[in-house]
């Protein structure tokens, strides 16, 4: 059964002149790679602690302001157990972005990420912004996945690669900021392709809610290539 398309803009509220986006980001990765700590670290940031919801570790929200564009980020955690792998599509449908986390000390967890990438590209095409994240860089001595290999792989699948440490709070802010910029750009390209943001066709991903009908601001590709 088709889910109803989002038509009401109430979720975003009226932005004073700026634009407002709502994005859904799904968090994928094997059990012990630290994906939850990563996202908890990001959302627990002292400037944002008031935005933490009741589902404190499974479903998180964060509000950002990127160059005058307001972004509501909803981060969906998933269970890492292999047993529940087949449930993935239910979670990542309608996602704007995916963060795929592996443990740099665990070659196997990187393999899992590769599997996820394959599946996501197959199910959602290029619409979804992929981030491959090598976590636990504080344990670089025990690294089993080479930086070279990981970055080459990421590039080959149109994903971006990041190095983080949840423990030392490294690289996390950059990861999310960069992801948001890319999602905004994708949404705007998508909007332009459809002529106007106001008409949401049946296949349009409901996660994107563009509130104002101000003409799309020109975004240069350059601003998103940093990080």
């Amino acid at each position: 059964m088709a889910a109803s398309a989002a038509t009401s803009g109430a979720g975003g509220g009226a932005a004073g002149g700026g634009r407002s986006f709502s994005f859904k980001v799904v968090l994928l990765g094997e059990g012990c790679v630290g994906k939850t700590s990563l996202v908890l670290r990001y959302c627990e940031n002292k400037f944002n602690d008031k935005h933490i919801t009741t589902l404190q570790a499974s479903f998180l929200t964060k509000k950002l302001n990127i160059g005058g564009k307001r972004v509501n980020l909803a981060i969906w955690d998933t269970a890492g157990q292999e047993r529940f792998h087949a449930l993935g599509p239910i979670y990542y449908r309608d996602s704007n972005g995916a963060i795929l986390v592996y443990d740099i000390t665990d070659e196997d967890s990187f393999q899992k990420v590769k599997n996820w990438v394959k599946e996501l590209r197959k199910m959602l095409g290029n619409e979804i912004c992929l981030c491959i994240v090598g976590n636990k860089i504080d344990l670089d001595k025990e690294r089993h996945v080479s930086i070279q290999e990981a970055e080459t792989y990421a590039e080959s699948v149109g994903a971006k690669h990041y190095h983080t440490s949840a423990k030392q709070n490294k690289g996390i802010e950059e990861l999310f900021l960069d992801l948001c910029k890319r999602m905004i750009e994708t949404a705007q390209v998508d909007e332009r392709a459809r002529g106007n943001g106001s008409s949401q066709s049946g296949t349009a991903r409901r996660g994107v809610q563009i509130i104002d009908d101000e003409p799309a601001a020109q975004t240069s590709g350059g601003c998103c290539s940093s990080g």
Binding site: G31, T36, L55, A57, S58, D77, A79, Q81, F84
Partner: peptide, 9 residues
Amino acid sequence: SLPMDDLLP
């Protein structure tokens, strides 16, 4: 706080 690894089961 339950992450999905704990919550889902």
